[in-house]
């Protein structure tokens, strides 16, 4: 199967169950699994034989499936806010839109490095925010916004629903003149995702 020359060897299109080799010739890497000493592909993708390191992997042809994991950056909509917590419905994980949603919790203590008094000064229901997953204990995803690229990226006036504009340390509604507080990301309102 593998040629004798060194370096990488690009394989061809493989699908789940395609035999890639045996464990005596390669170390199985991502996109592969081993059964009875034989390495098989587990996804549709392109096989890659690293002949220098004796590794075989399969690179997905489509963008692989995404599920929130510790460390992944997610985008979600705030569904409800209490003084201590905000519930977020995640619809985008690591820049990939999901077909469903995952629910997660953002706690006041994980909003900023400094002390935050109330969750109502951080976000409001309907806001879109970017956050990072820090834990999945007790079957719930816990989020943090302790970074300058994390926080609310779209906020809406709780009085009239118009999109808020940042003005100094507060958010301002151009339609009804209301000012509100938010923990915004540095690129608030600038990026489409």
């Amino acid at each position: 199967m593998a040629s004798k020359s060194s370096g990488h060897k690009k394989g061809h299109l493989v699908s789940p169950g395609d035999r890639l080799g045996v464990i005596e010739e390669f170390t199985p890497d991502v996109g592969t699994y081993v059964k009875n000493g034989v390495i098989y592909s587990e996804i549709i993708g392109k096989s890659l034989f690293d002949l220098a390191q004796k590794r075989v992997s399969v690179h997905p042809k489509l963008r692989g499936i995404k599920v929130p994991k510790i460390g992944s950056t997610v985008i979600g909509q705030v569904s409800s806010v209490q003084t201590q917590n905000a519930n977020v419905r995640i619809f985008n994980v690591d820049k990939k839109d999901l077909s469903g949603i995952f629910t997660a919790v953002l706690h006041v203590s994980d909003v900023q490095m400094r002390f935050v008094d109330s969750m109502f000064d951080v976000c409001k229901p309907g806001d879109i925010l970017r956050a990072r997953v820090i834990s999945e204990k007790n079957r719930t995803y816990h989020l943090t916004t302790k970074d300058k690229d994390l926080g609310v990226i779209y906020a809406f006036c709780s009085n009239c629903g118009y999109m808020l504009e940042p003005r100094r340390y507060m958010m301002h509604c151009a339609r009804c003149g209301r000012t509100e507080k938010r923990k915004t990301a540095f690129d608030y309102g600038k990026r489409p995702t």
Binding site: S15, P16, G17, E42, I43, I44, L62
Partner: peptide
Amino acid sequence: LADAGIPMRDI
């Protein structure tokens, strides 16, 4: 399932 990218032993 394979098209969705779900890891499988075989089709």
